[in-house]
């Protein structure tokens, strides 16, 4: 695929200066009122810096998204927050109190849905949920009620006697979620819960997370699927190489980099000269062409489509289907880091 980028400094005089990594915006709640407060966290794996002075503040009631490519430090951050991993520097407070490995009172309020499905293969669906619920709830009767509600919540009522190996990938993920949230936590961490999940299960999972949040549970949601994060998160942090490169609402992030829509045109046999003319348009940031699909990334503006079509018409190109996509978080990530979110 040809790519004429206007974000690289030397590419074009028409392109704007590269967007510098934006400082995370202030959290909506002061650290003292926050449910999660991470201050200056540094985590190294030998010479590799996994978390580089990482800061995070999450207010009660949020669905907070951690978005970043694989290896950006999302899971490491969660494991440090939950005291599973040691870290080199920094401080972590949950529910306003310092978090340590033996703060079982704090752990009791936390639910975790790990990235890797972590279940007993030998126990049934109900037995698995009961086991993990028992890590937080001693009372048997209370637990039976919670397990029943969790089964209903994730829609596994027809599978309670099944063992995990009999479940599909989507159902397995749902069971993983049920095990993490059966005890009705006040704070829940979802680490890539929809990896390798069918669309139907994914929709059910996202709907369930929303429902949990409406009931008062604060959610920390990590993913490299920007669509999911955009869909459910009230605030989003974009991470790259262990650093928080931007924080804000979906709208704030997109406004931050001034990205406009992406114009998609189906056109055959587009010459490099035409692509250069398109790239030279004042509001165009990037042009890519993979025959027959032309993608023109624009800044915010009113005449973007008209100008692009005018160039094509002047060059004698007959466009087929034409449509415009609104800017995505991938565009934001691209602007800030100079690479695709899924690179």
């Amino acid at each position: 695929m040809d790519d004429i980028s206007t974000t690289a400094p030397a590419d074009s005089a028409t392109s704007p200066a590269p967007v510098a990594p934006t400082a995370p915006t202030a959290a909506p709640a002061a650290a003292a009122d926050s449910i999660v407060a991470v201050d200056n966290l540094v985590k190294r794996y030998g010479d590799v810096v996994a978390l580089d002075h990482f800061n995070l503040t999450i207010a009660p009631g949020e669905i907070f998204g951690l978005l970043g490519p694989n290896g950006s430090g999302k899971t490491t951050a969660i494991n440090c927050i939950l005291q599973l991993l040691t870290f080199d520097k920094g401080a972590i407070r949950l529910f306003g109190a310092p978090m340590t490995p033996t703060r079982y009172d704090l752990k009791r309020k936390i639910g975790v849905v790990p990235q890797n499905v972590a279940l007993f293969d030998e126990l049934t669906v109900r037995e698995n949920i009961d086991f993990f619920c028992a890590l937080y709830v001693d009372d048997r009767r209370e637990r039976a009620r919670l397990v029943g509600e969790a089964i209903e919540f994730v829609g596994l009522g027809d599978y309670t006697g099944f063992r995990p190996r009999k479940l599909s990938g989507g159902l397995l993920r749902r069971l993983n979620i049920a095990c993490g949230i059966a005890h009705k936590p006040q704070l829940a961490f979802f680490d890539e819960p929809t990896v390798a999940v069918d669309p139907q299960s994914r929709a059910a999972i996202l709907e369930g997370i929303r429902a949990m949040n409406e009931r008062g549970c604060t959610v920390v949601y990590t993913s490299h699927y920007m669509e999911e994060v955009e869909e459910i998160c009230s605030r989003i942090m974009i991470m790259d190489r262990g650093r928080a490169v931007a924080v804000g609402t979906n709208g704030e992030l997109k406004a931050m980099v001034g990205a406009g829509e992406r114009i998609m045109v189906e056109v055959a046999g587009l010459s490099p000269a035409v692509r250069e003319r398109l790239a030279a348009l004042p509001h165009v940031r990037r042009v890519t062409y993979s025959e027959p699909e032309l993608a023109v990334q624009c800044e915010q503006g009113a005449r973007n489509v008209a100008d692009v079509l005018a160039v094509l018409a002047a060059e004698g190109c007959a466009p087929g289907r034409v449509y415009a996509e609104p800017p995505t978080l991938n565009d934001v990530f691209l602007e800030i880091t100079g690479k695709e979110l899924r690179d």
Partner: peptide
């Protein structure tokens, strides 16, 4: 099954509220 460094299940269990 109980050790975080030996299995995902161990890691998951270590996050529970039981010592």
């Amino acid at each position: 099954w109980t050790q975080p460094n030996l299995s995902p299940l161990g890691a998951r269990r270590a996050l529970g509220a039981i010592g």
